[in-house]
Design a protein around this nucleic acid. Structure first.
Lengths: 131, 131
DNA sequence: CGAATAATGTAAGAAAATCTAACATCATAT
DNA sequence: ATATGATGTTAGATTTTCTTACATTATTCG
């Protein structure tokens, strides 16, 4: 289920950081975008902003390229694996929270004592980079 | 326990993003840094980079200020709550993973099927913003 | 009251980061 | 041996962030 599938799509990272996290050059990242493997959003000033999902994507792309698959192949692979998700998850669950709402939640959590230093590992996504 | 207390300290976010996430102006954020309530790292080119912990901090600062506590008070509060952590956690657990190691883990996780769309909520930190 | 202080706003000029576009390189496939 | 795919490199423009300095506003205190 998934009430919390909220913010992996949040545009947060400039390309410089993404380069480090994914170990790719700016040229590579822009090239993959050019071929629509990723679609980072833009700031008002036209700078790219990447989400965690975008970074996941880039890591997948990198991996598949290293396996000898070309861009066209990767595109098709993504098309398929995405259709899956789209079918499982009918459409917009309207689970958007405003930034304000999120901050409020966040503050409540943070100010409540006794829950620091959590540690459990969650599998399978970039949150491993954090926590 | 905590083998995974790794990346909440990772410098990732430029000030523009932090402004949005914490709903603070650049002036405010720099002022708090000036008073050593946060200590973001810098890029080679002297741009500030904030970690998730830094953003937590900023949200705390904001909250405490709204409660009428001044910078000096907040500083003292942080000094106390930090001494706690320092004592509980003796010192460097040497739990640093290189970026390369992290990426490797990450790719393994991502390429393994059947663990997408997880949902469990973890309490008390900024990861709520993501996943 | 009137002057200090604290927190934040604002502006200017410099420097860094990112953008697009174009051309170069290098391996692979035809 | 020539075309194509993926990436490198460079140049010039634009955006973002930096520091510094001064302005504003509310509060405290003599």
């Amino acid at each position: 289920m998934g009430g919390s599938e909220i913010r992996r799509t949040m545009p947060l990272f400039p390309i410089g950081i993404v380069m480090q996290l994914a170990d790719l050059t700016a040229r590579q990242i822009r090239y993959y975008e050019e071929h629509e493997l990723i679609l980072p959003t833009r700031t008002e000033g036209n700078r790219r902003l990447f989400s965690l999902n975008d970074i996941d994507r880039l890591l997948e792309i990198k991996d598949l390229l290293e396996q000898g698959i070309n861009i066209a192949g990767i595109k098709k692979i993504f098309a398929v694996s995405h259709k899956e998700n789209d079918e499982v998850e009918p459409v917009a669950k309207k689970d958007e929270l405003s930034d304000e709402e999120l901050r409020t939640l966040l503050k409540k959590e943070m100010m409540s004592p006794g829950n620091r230093n959590r540690s459990s590992l969650r599998a399978g996504d970039l949150s491993r980079f954090f926590q």
